[in-house]
Amino acid sequence: MSEALLETRAVSKHYQMGATTVVALDGVSVEVREGEFVALQGTSGSGKSTLLNLIGGLDQPTSGEVVFDGRSLAPFSKREMARYRRHAVGMIFQNFNLIPTMTAAENVSLALAFGGVRGRARDERTRALLERVGLAERTAHRPAELSGGEQQRVAIARALANRPRVLLADEPTGNLDSTRAHELLSLLRTMVERDRLTVLMVTHDRELAARFADRTIQMKDGKIEQRMRDEG
């Protein structure tokens, strides 16, 4: 068994809601190896999205630590955290989170711009990324002119712009019909198999998790409930 690319060590996240403290995560430890497609499955409020945000570097745990490629994120400065988000992980969301005033190509290009890619190299990489998700013909369209599935694919292209090793997907099929959902997850599956991409996907859909992920981590009330291995 190879060493984990991604690891959480007893991470907890508490939110202060007025006088009461809400425990979103309670000592969660998970491991994801390189080239693995892992599903985080649980009901809403189970803490799965919170866990994903911690791994994605968008949020800091109250206790515990996130470890990427053997390095703990805990001592990272804000700037190092931004670099981590830029180069180590890519994220996609249920509502796609594309910038509505930008075309598909501009959305992808923006991420490349933050990654320091310039000029022709940026244009070429933008085209290559959109081609890879099957949107070579839709580069000049704005999100509103694209279907949900297409928008999510633009989001995938953007997430992978700076060649991260991990793709973090937060309910990526939440706004898609089942056909589009299957298409999208097939695409991710291909990337995992062909490019050794590592995918950590949050979903509430048991069936999709079982069908596309290598394994599913079950969460409930901020804790890991059970680990399932699924070779499907």
Partner: peptide, 8 residues
């Protein structure tokens, strides 16, 4: 979004 894709 910008922060998520790595804006400082």
């Amino acid at each position: 979004i910008m922060k998520a894709v790595g804006a400082e």
